[in-house]
Design a protein around this nucleic acid. Sequence first.
DNA 1: AAGAGGCCCTGATAGC
DNA 2: TGCTATCAGGGCCTCT
Length: 286
Amino acid sequence: MPELPEVEIVKQSLDKKIKFKIIKKVIVRNRNLRIKIPINFEDILKNKKVKKILRFSKYIIIHLSENTFCIIHLGMSGTIHLANNKKNRFTNLSFYKSQNLPDKHNHIEIQFKNFNIIYNDPRRFGFFELLNNKKDLLERFANYGPEPFSKIFNLSYVSNFLKNKKKNIKNFLLDQKFVSGIGNIYANEILFFCKIKPQKKALNLSRDEYKKIIRFSKLVLKKAIKLGGSSIRNFKNISGNDGLFQNNFKVYQRENLNCSKYNCNGKIKKKIISKRATFFCNKCQK
DNA sequence: AAGAGGCCCTGATAGC
DNA sequence: TGCTATCAGGGCCTCT
Protein backbone atom coordinates (compact mmCIF):
# COMPACT_ATOMS: atom_id res chain seq x y z
CA MET A 1 0.00 0.00 0.00
CA PRO A 2 1.60 2.89 1.48
CA GLU A 3 3.71 5.82 0.48
CA LEU A 4 3.90 9.11 2.34
CA PRO A 5 0.37 10.33 1.46
CA GLU A 6 -1.32 7.07 2.48
CA VAL A 7 0.66 6.91 5.72
CA GLU A 8 -0.29 10.53 6.41
CA ILE A 9 -3.98 9.67 5.99
CA VAL A 10 -3.65 6.78 8.43
CA LYS A 11 -1.77 9.04 10.84
CA GLN A 12 -4.46 11.72 10.67
CA SER A 13 -7.27 9.30 11.33
CA LEU A 14 -5.36 7.67 14.20
CA ASP A 15 -4.80 11.14 15.61
CA LYS A 16 -8.54 11.78 15.69
CA LYS A 17 -9.29 8.44 17.26
CA ILE A 18 -6.62 7.46 19.77
CA LYS A 19 -4.96 10.69 20.92
CA PHE A 20 -5.07 10.97 24.74
CA LYS A 21 -6.67 7.52 24.97
CA ILE A 22 -5.34 4.74 27.16
CA ILE A 23 -4.39 1.30 25.87
CA LYS A 24 -6.43 -1.29 27.77
CA LYS A 25 -5.12 -4.47 26.26
CA VAL A 26 -2.90 -5.72 23.42
CA ILE A 27 -3.25 -9.00 21.55
CA VAL A 28 -0.48 -10.28 19.27
CA ARG A 29 -1.49 -13.23 17.11
CA ASN A 30 1.58 -13.45 14.91
CA ARG A 31 4.93 -12.14 16.11
CA ASN A 32 6.70 -12.86 12.84
CA LEU A 33 6.43 -9.53 11.16
CA ARG A 34 9.49 -8.15 9.36
CA ILE A 35 10.88 -7.39 12.81
CA LYS A 36 9.89 -9.99 15.39
CA ILE A 37 7.47 -8.67 18.01
CA PRO A 38 9.19 -9.11 21.38
CA ILE A 39 7.51 -11.20 24.04
CA ASN A 40 7.06 -8.23 26.41
CA PHE A 41 5.43 -6.03 23.72
CA GLU A 42 1.93 -6.39 25.19
CA ASP A 43 3.09 -5.58 28.72
CA ILE A 44 4.98 -2.49 27.63
CA LEU A 45 1.99 -1.02 25.82
CA LYS A 46 -0.65 -1.89 28.37
CA ASN A 47 -2.03 1.08 30.35
CA LYS A 48 0.08 3.58 28.42
CA LYS A 49 -1.55 6.78 27.25
CA VAL A 50 -1.25 8.05 23.69
CA LYS A 51 0.32 11.50 23.91
CA LYS A 52 0.87 12.32 20.26
CA ILE A 53 0.92 10.73 16.81
CA LEU A 54 3.70 11.69 14.44
CA ARG A 55 4.68 10.66 10.96
CA PHE A 56 8.07 10.65 9.34
CA SER A 57 8.40 9.39 5.78
CA LYS A 58 6.38 6.17 5.56
CA TYR A 59 6.52 5.58 9.32
CA ILE A 60 3.87 6.29 11.93
CA ILE A 61 5.25 7.12 15.35
CA ILE A 62 2.97 6.83 18.35
CA HIS A 63 4.34 8.79 21.27
CA LEU A 64 3.13 7.10 24.46
CA SER A 65 3.48 7.97 28.11
CA GLU A 66 6.72 7.13 29.92
CA ASN A 67 8.76 8.17 26.89
CA THR A 68 7.77 5.15 24.88
CA PHE A 69 7.67 5.42 21.09
CA CYS A 70 5.91 2.84 18.95
CA ILE A 71 7.05 2.98 15.33
CA ILE A 72 4.74 1.39 12.78
CA HIS A 73 5.65 0.63 9.18
CA LEU A 74 2.96 -0.79 6.91
CA GLY A 75 5.34 -2.49 4.48
CA MET A 76 3.61 -3.36 1.22
CA SER A 77 0.32 -4.70 2.46
CA GLY A 78 -0.22 -3.42 6.01
CA THR A 79 -3.54 -1.78 6.90
CA ILE A 80 -4.94 -0.41 10.12
CA HIS A 81 -8.60 -0.87 10.91
CA LEU A 82 -10.94 0.60 13.44
CA ALA A 83 -13.41 -1.76 15.08
CA ASN A 84 -16.15 -0.56 17.38
CA ASN A 85 -16.21 -2.70 20.44
CA LYS A 86 -18.43 -1.02 22.97
CA LYS A 87 -18.84 -4.07 25.14
CA ASN A 88 -15.20 -5.11 24.79
CA ARG A 89 -16.35 -8.28 23.13
CA PHE A 90 -13.94 -11.10 22.45
CA THR A 91 -12.73 -10.65 18.89
CA ASN A 92 -13.19 -13.66 16.66
CA LEU A 93 -14.20 -14.43 13.12
CA SER A 94 -17.81 -13.42 13.58
CA PHE A 95 -16.72 -10.16 15.22
CA TYR A 96 -14.61 -9.33 12.17
CA LYS A 97 -17.42 -10.27 9.81
CA SER A 98 -19.90 -8.14 11.71
CA GLN A 99 -17.65 -5.10 11.26
CA ASN A 100 -16.70 -5.80 7.68
CA LEU A 101 -13.05 -6.44 8.58
CA PRO A 102 -10.63 -8.89 6.98
CA ASP A 103 -10.84 -12.33 8.55
CA LYS A 104 -7.19 -13.31 8.07
CA HIS A 105 -3.84 -11.73 8.98
CA ASN A 106 -5.11 -9.58 11.84
CA HIS A 107 -1.76 -9.84 13.59
CA ILE A 108 -2.02 -7.16 16.25
CA GLU A 109 -5.00 -5.78 18.06
CA ILE A 110 -4.90 -2.84 20.44
CA GLN A 111 -7.91 -2.41 22.63
CA PHE A 112 -9.05 1.00 23.87
CA LYS A 113 -12.23 1.80 25.72
CA ASN A 114 -15.09 1.10 23.30
CA PHE A 115 -12.99 0.32 20.23
CA ASN A 116 -10.07 -1.67 18.88
CA ILE A 117 -7.32 -0.79 16.44
CA ILE A 118 -6.39 -3.78 14.29
CA TYR A 119 -3.17 -4.23 12.32
CA ASN A 120 -3.65 -6.45 9.28
CA ASP A 121 -0.79 -7.41 6.98
CA PRO A 122 -0.95 -10.40 4.59
CA ARG A 123 2.65 -10.17 3.39
CA ARG A 124 4.10 -9.26 6.79
CA PHE A 125 6.61 -6.79 5.35
CA GLY A 126 5.43 -4.27 7.92
CA PHE A 127 6.55 -4.03 11.53
CA PHE A 128 6.10 -2.49 14.96
CA GLU A 129 9.17 -1.28 16.80
CA LEU A 130 9.38 0.04 20.36
CA LEU A 131 11.89 2.65 21.53
CA ASN A 132 12.14 4.05 25.04
CA ASN A 133 13.79 7.40 24.56
CA LYS A 134 13.90 10.32 22.19
CA LYS A 135 17.57 9.93 21.40
CA ASP A 136 17.00 6.46 19.95
CA LEU A 137 14.11 7.84 17.94
CA LEU A 138 16.28 10.54 16.37
CA GLU A 139 19.01 8.00 15.69
CA ARG A 140 16.53 5.63 14.12
CA PHE A 141 15.89 8.09 11.30
CA ALA A 142 19.29 9.76 11.15
CA ASN A 143 20.21 8.16 7.84
CA TYR A 144 17.05 9.20 6.07
CA GLY A 145 16.95 12.08 3.64
CA PRO A 146 14.54 15.00 4.15
CA GLU A 147 10.90 14.76 3.24
CA PRO A 148 9.90 16.61 0.06
CA PHE A 149 8.10 19.19 2.24
CA SER A 150 11.22 19.97 4.24
CA LYS A 151 13.10 23.25 3.80
CA ILE A 152 16.23 21.15 3.54
CA PHE A 153 14.94 19.62 0.30
CA ASN A 154 16.10 22.63 -1.70
CA LEU A 155 18.13 23.41 -4.80
CA SER A 156 21.55 23.24 -3.19
CA TYR A 157 20.74 19.96 -1.44
CA VAL A 158 19.38 18.34 -4.58
CA SER A 159 22.13 19.53 -6.88
CA ASN A 160 24.85 18.53 -4.43
CA PHE A 161 23.33 15.11 -3.99
CA LEU A 162 22.68 14.36 -7.66
CA LYS A 163 25.61 15.90 -9.49
CA ASN A 164 28.03 13.26 -10.82
CA LYS A 165 25.62 10.44 -9.96
CA LYS A 166 25.18 7.90 -12.73
CA LYS A 167 22.04 6.26 -11.41
CA ASN A 168 18.75 7.15 -13.08
CA ILE A 169 16.59 9.82 -11.50
CA LYS A 170 13.66 7.53 -10.78
CA ASN A 171 15.79 5.34 -8.53
CA PHE A 172 16.88 8.44 -6.64
CA LEU A 173 13.28 9.42 -5.98
CA LEU A 174 12.84 5.93 -4.52
CA ASP A 175 16.06 6.18 -2.52
CA GLN A 176 15.07 7.11 1.04
CA LYS A 177 18.57 8.42 1.72
CA PHE A 178 18.00 11.11 -0.89
CA VAL A 179 14.38 11.97 -0.15
CA SER A 180 12.02 10.27 2.29
CA GLY A 181 8.50 9.13 1.65
CA ILE A 182 8.27 8.68 -2.11
CA GLY A 183 7.51 5.20 -3.44
CA ASN A 184 6.91 3.72 -6.85
CA ILE A 185 3.56 5.31 -7.67
CA TYR A 186 4.51 8.85 -6.78
CA ALA A 187 7.98 8.59 -8.31
CA ASN A 188 6.29 7.86 -11.63
CA GLU A 189 3.71 10.61 -11.22
CA ILE A 190 6.23 13.25 -10.12
CA LEU A 191 8.51 12.61 -13.11
CA PHE A 192 5.55 12.99 -15.46
CA PHE A 193 4.92 16.51 -14.17
CA CYS A 194 8.64 17.28 -14.34
CA LYS A 195 8.66 16.11 -17.99
CA ILE A 196 11.73 14.03 -17.19
CA LYS A 197 12.25 10.49 -18.48
CA PRO A 198 12.58 8.08 -15.52
CA GLN A 199 15.70 6.49 -17.04
CA LYS A 200 17.54 9.81 -17.34
CA LYS A 201 20.81 9.74 -15.41
CA ALA A 202 20.98 12.15 -12.49
CA LEU A 203 24.21 13.74 -13.79
CA ASN A 204 22.44 14.78 -16.98
CA LEU A 205 19.76 16.80 -15.22
CA SER A 206 19.73 20.57 -15.62
CA ARG A 207 19.32 23.13 -12.86
CA ASP A 208 15.84 23.77 -14.14
CA GLU A 209 15.04 20.08 -13.83
CA TYR A 210 16.28 20.02 -10.23
CA LYS A 211 13.83 22.82 -9.51
CA LYS A 212 11.00 20.91 -11.11
CA ILE A 213 11.79 17.82 -9.07
CA ILE A 214 11.59 19.86 -5.86
CA ARG A 215 8.42 21.66 -6.90
CA PHE A 216 6.45 18.69 -8.18
CA SER A 217 7.50 16.34 -5.38
CA LYS A 218 5.78 18.70 -2.97
CA LEU A 219 2.84 19.36 -5.26
CA VAL A 220 1.99 15.77 -6.17
CA LEU A 221 2.25 14.50 -2.59
CA LYS A 222 0.20 17.39 -1.23
CA LYS A 223 -2.55 16.80 -3.73
CA ALA A 224 -2.54 13.08 -2.95
CA ILE A 225 -2.92 13.79 0.77
CA LYS A 226 -5.73 16.21 0.03
CA LEU A 227 -7.55 13.47 -1.87
CA GLY A 228 -7.09 10.89 0.87
CA GLY A 229 -4.22 8.99 -0.78
CA SER A 230 -4.34 6.44 -3.58
CA SER A 231 -6.51 3.34 -3.23
CA ILE A 232 -5.18 0.56 -5.36
CA ARG A 233 -5.41 -2.98 -4.08
CA ASN A 234 -6.37 -2.63 -0.45
CA PHE A 235 -5.58 0.86 0.79
CA LYS A 236 -8.31 2.47 2.85
CA ASN A 237 -8.26 4.86 5.74
CA ILE A 238 -8.92 3.30 9.14
CA SER A 239 -12.66 3.76 8.77
CA GLY A 240 -12.63 1.77 5.55
CA ASN A 241 -13.00 4.62 3.06
CA ASP A 242 -11.06 4.74 -0.22
CA GLY A 243 -8.71 7.54 -1.23
CA LEU A 244 -9.29 9.25 -4.56
CA PHE A 245 -5.88 10.12 -5.93
CA GLN A 246 -5.83 7.04 -8.17
CA ASN A 247 -8.37 8.86 -10.34
CA ASN A 248 -5.71 11.50 -10.93
CA PHE A 249 -2.94 9.15 -12.05
CA LYS A 250 -1.31 10.51 -15.20
CA VAL A 251 0.95 7.56 -15.90
CA TYR A 252 0.80 4.91 -13.19
CA GLN A 253 -1.04 1.83 -14.49
CA ARG A 254 -2.01 3.72 -17.64
CA GLU A 255 0.01 1.72 -20.13
CA ASN A 256 -0.97 2.30 -23.79
CA LEU A 257 -3.34 5.15 -22.93
CA ASN A 258 -2.92 8.58 -24.48
CA CYS A 259 -0.84 11.15 -22.67
CA SER A 260 -3.09 13.62 -20.88
CA LYS A 261 -0.82 16.62 -21.38
CA TYR A 262 -2.40 19.30 -23.54
CA ASN A 263 -1.17 19.09 -27.14
CA CYS A 264 0.90 15.96 -26.53
CA ASN A 265 0.01 13.02 -28.74
CA GLY A 266 2.29 10.59 -26.92
CA LYS A 267 1.37 7.26 -25.39
CA ILE A 268 2.09 6.02 -21.88
CA LYS A 269 4.72 3.29 -21.91
CA LYS A 270 5.55 0.72 -19.26
CA LYS A 271 9.09 -0.40 -18.67
CA ILE A 272 10.65 -2.36 -15.83
CA ILE A 273 13.47 -0.33 -14.29
CA SER A 274 15.37 -1.95 -11.42
CA LYS A 275 12.60 -4.53 -11.12
CA ARG A 276 9.92 -1.89 -10.56
CA ALA A 277 7.11 -1.07 -12.99
CA THR A 278 7.84 2.33 -14.51
CA PHE A 279 5.35 4.40 -16.48
CA PHE A 280 6.05 7.47 -18.61
CA CYS A 281 4.97 9.32 -21.72
CA ASN A 282 7.20 8.44 -24.65
CA LYS A 283 6.88 11.94 -26.10
CA CYS A 284 6.76 14.71 -23.54
CA GLN A 285 9.11 13.24 -20.90
CA LYS A 286 12.66 13.84 -22.06
C1' DA B 1 31.46 4.33 -2.78
C1' DA B 2 27.98 3.62 -5.88
C1' DG B 3 24.95 0.69 -7.89
C1' DA B 4 22.78 -3.77 -8.94
C1' DG B 5 20.41 -7.69 -7.28
C1' DG B 6 18.37 -10.90 -3.92
C1' DC B 7 15.25 -11.65 -0.42
C1' DC B 8 11.49 -11.44 3.12
C1' DC B 9 5.80 -13.05 2.31
C1' DT B 10 0.85 -13.84 0.64
C1' DG B 11 -2.77 -12.95 -2.63
C1' DA B 12 -4.73 -11.59 -7.03
C1' DT B 13 -4.77 -12.43 -11.65
C1' DA B 14 -3.62 -14.38 -16.15
C1' DG B 15 -2.77 -18.19 -19.04
C1' DC B 16 -3.03 -22.93 -20.03
C1' DT C 1 -11.77 -26.75 -11.64
C1' DG C 2 -7.15 -26.40 -10.95
C1' DC C 3 -2.47 -25.99 -11.86
C1' DT C 4 1.69 -22.64 -12.48
C1' DA C 5 3.85 -18.28 -13.29
C1' DT C 6 4.06 -13.49 -12.61
C1' DC C 7 3.50 -9.38 -10.31
C1' DA C 8 2.39 -6.07 -6.25
C1' DG C 9 2.66 0.28 -3.26
C1' DG C 10 9.16 -1.39 0.66
C1' DG C 11 13.50 -1.65 2.54
C1' DC C 12 17.47 -4.07 4.13
C1' DC C 13 21.43 -6.70 3.18
C1' DT C 14 25.30 -8.43 0.39
C1' DC C 15 28.21 -8.47 -3.45
C1' DT C 16 31.03 -6.40 -7.01
